[in-house]
């Protein structure tokens, strides 16, 4: 699937053996977005011509030339990926530290808001740190939000909640975050209105 990072769009994929990987979202052959591609075994293939790439970014196969071992120079840039407490973290550049631990919570969903981080913080009445922030929209509902800016105008919101939450609490949390997004987008619209 596609994802956006400060160093550009990436293709995030999980190999058949279950390992997450991230590469630049562009096949060096003809510029096609690799996030439109397909995963077979431990390789990500481009939908356009089927060129396939290993987790490390080296090209494994060029279907138009089945007898040819692709030269080492054909590579797609990759990023370091860590999967931790149900959250996938991608390092931009060299990772200097492990991702923060998020114990006792489980991931619920991710959604994109057409609003900057500040508008979401304002809507929730909280300030985000590296491990996001806790938000309690109603009693008995403890939600943790991780905010990732997607350019200046959009924010990706990862929603986590206590791992002993009931089904009805989970559904309530999902709906509460929809409301939070609506509030934040209204704030954003008002703030940017001429």
């Amino acid at each position: 699937m596609p994802a956006r990072t400060p160093v550009g769009p990436i293709a995030l994929w999980r190999s058949q053996s279950g390992r997450a990987a991230a590469s630049a979202d562009r096949c060096p052959h003809r510029g096609m977005r690799l996030s439109h591609g397909f995963v077979r075994g431990e390789a990500l293939s481009c939908i356009y011509h089927g060129w396939s790439y290993a987790r490390a970014g080296n090209c494994l196969r060029i279907p138009a030339h089945p007898g040819l071992a692709p030269p080492e120079t054909i590579r797609v840039p990759t990023h370091e990926v860590e999967e931790c407490d149900g959250v996938i973290w991608v390092a931009v550049g060299e990772a200097t530290a492990q991702p923060p631990r998020l114990q006792g919570v489980v991931p619920l969903r991710s959604l994109t808001a057409h609003a900057a981080v500040a508008a979401i913080e304002a809507a929730a009445g909280a300030k985000a740190g590296v491990d996001g922030f806790a938000w309690q929209p109603q009693s008995k509902l403890q939600i943790r939000l991780l905010l990732v800016p997607q350019g200046a105008e959009e924010t990706l919101i990862h929603v986590l909640l206590d791992d002993d939450s009931s089904l009805s609490q989970r559904i309530a949390a999902s709906r509460a975050v929809e409301t939070l997004r609506r509030t934040a987008e209204d704030l954003e619209t008002k703030a940017t209105a001429p």
Binding site: V39, R40, L60, G67, L68
Partner: peptide, 15 residues
């Protein structure tokens, strides 16, 4: 709507 090519098994690898 493209075919889900992942459903097709990989063919013989070079070598």
């Amino acid at each position: 709507i493209h075919r889900l090519h992942e459903l097709k098994r990989e063919h013989v690898e070079p070598g």
